[in-house]
Amino acid sequence: MTIAAPDAPLLQVGTLTKTFGGFTALDNISVDIRKGERFGLIGPNGSGKTTLINCISGALKPQAGSVVFCGEDITQLSPHLRARRGIARSFQIPRPFKSMTVLENLMVGLDFAAAGSAAAEEEIAMSILTRMGLAAKAMAPSDTLSQVELRKMELARAMAVRPKLLISDEAMAGLSSSEVDEVLDLLISLGEEDITIIMIEHIMQAVMRFSERVMCLDAGKIIALGEPAEVMANKRVQEAYLGT
């Protein structure tokens, strides 16, 4: 076994099992995510997508299995320590720090996950906001944002953690098709900067355009993993989505 080889996976999820009472949300999930990869995660509602990323980001602790990030076993680490190691996420339903301005929302991540001087931090925060097209809203209270702005701010806040791995949990849910393209372009451009991205999404054309690999979950199990077109063509995937 080689440790930290150049092409070693950034994230290794090994035989992960998570149950809630008698319900098995994740059943023996193993997957490796390569460095710099754009990885799509799909599956019908309740298939375990969010549970999986909760286990990766630390919001939930699995009953069995391991999560290895950059060669380090992080299965038992709390979320803030994972954030400091470079795992950032957005939430399915945006969870802004609503008493803060947009800029302050980003400053939290810069303050706690990526230490630096205050002046430099503000500069970094502004440059992230500019990239996200939110610069004009920097001083706006975050509870005055529109839905698409909130989604972008969630991504911007995740970026403020200076992540190696960014997990986007349905960042496009509820957006119009032009807004979907806008957010998707952002994610793709982030992927070009050596940030590995896991994207959970229901909008198939977005998944197809974004992903280098796609994994489909159903009832806590992996039913397909591979190139997007291949996964879409998979009979079990179609059954899972459309029913038999």
């Binding site: 980001s57 630390g58 919001a59 709390s78 979320p79 803030h80 954030a83 400091r84 950032a88 996420r89 939430f91 969870r95 802004p96 720090f97 609503k98 008493s99 803060m100 302050e104 400053m107 939290v108 991540g109 303050d111 706690f112 996950a113 990526a114 806040r157 995740a158 403020a160 953690v161």
Partner: peptide, 17 residues
């Protein structure tokens, strides 16, 4: 700032470091 963040949303604060 950390306290303010956790008051607004504890999980989001934790995931932001």
């Amino acid at each position: 700032r950390g306290l303010q963040a956790l008051r607004d949303d504890e999980l989001a604060a934790e995931c932001t470091g």
